[in-house]
């Protein structure tokens, strides 16, 4: 039995069917990448899993327990944290308050919150330096760290990350990916949605490709990275930064 098991998930926005039967699994200790173009349904998949959207049909099981119809705040307590696209930190609260809110479930156990907060500060010392600042004053990279740190306050079984590298400088993207690897080593399984397909597949164990609301491919990450269809659509067949230099003349 997989840790996170999604089968035949259908979600609608009004009359538009955004998910047309998504099935995927995340095993314990795995990093699973979910790739696809914009509007394919990646974000909707995460939002449905974490209870922000309601599935029309299908099921989501976390450690064997059915969570499809549970509300978002219950799902967090069952061990699934979702770091939404665009970070969504509370800019009007301090960093310390943001982290405290991440552990809202433990609000009656201040000692535990304090301990978890220490752990997060150890991983992100920069957050400790600024703990009393309003989160809105952080730079983009620091905000992403805060968003991840906040989700880690409950030490979830599964962490769903939506585009953690979006809008970040290349040097920060690398840092974030390294943090994701650290989190996996700590024992949290990760479901990673990324535009940056190449880097995501380098990090992940397995990957799924989603197109117009359906999973069209899934395989080991290495195999996917070599798959010609994937290369054409998501990797653009492109070499890396250093050798790209204006060679693109296809237009």
């Amino acid at each position: 039995m997989a840790l996170l098991e999604i089968s035949d998930l259908h979600t609608f926005y009004g009359s538009i069917e955004a998910l047309r039967g998504i099935s995927l699994e995340v095993e314990e200790g795995e990093i699973v990448a979910l790739l696809g173009s914009n509007g394919a349904g990646k974000t909707t998949t995460l939002r449905t899993i974490s209870g922000l959207e309601r599935a029309r049909s299908g099921s989501v099981k976390l450690a064997g327990e059915e969570i499809t119809r549970r509300r978002a705040h219950d799902i967090v307590s069952l061990g699934l944290s979702h770091v939404p696209e665009g970070r969504r930190i509370f800019a009007n609260l301090t960093i310390e308050e943001n982290l405290g809110l991440g552990a809202y479930l433990y609000r009656r156990h201040p000692a535990l919150i304090k301990e978890r907060r220490q752990t997060v500060y150890e991983i992100f010392p920069r957050l400790l330096e600024r703990k009393d600042q309003l989160a809105g004053t952080l730079s983009g990279g620091e905000q992403q760290m805060l968003a991840i740190g906040r989700a880690m306050m409950v030490q979830p079984k599964v962490l769903a990350l939506d585009e953690p590298s979006m809008g970040l400088a290349p040097i920060l993207v690398r840092q974030i990916f390294r943090i994701i690897e650290e989190i996996r080593q700590r024992g949290t399984a990760i479901l990673l949605v990324e535009q940056n397909a190449l880097q995501a597949l380098r990090l992940a164990d397995r990957g799924y490709v989603i197109e117009t609301g359906r999973i069209v491919l899934h395989d080991d990450a290495k195999a996917l990275a070599q798959d010609p269809r994937v290369r054409a659509a998501y990797l653009g067949g492109e070499p890396e930064v250093d050798t790209a230099q204006g060679t693109d003349t296809t237009n």
Partner: peptide
Amino acid sequence: DAYLGSDGGDVDDEAVNTWPS
């Protein structure tokens, strides 16, 4: 140094320590 980073992935990174076990 400031922005692109070297590409090897072996940059020593002050912001990331290892997770305590």
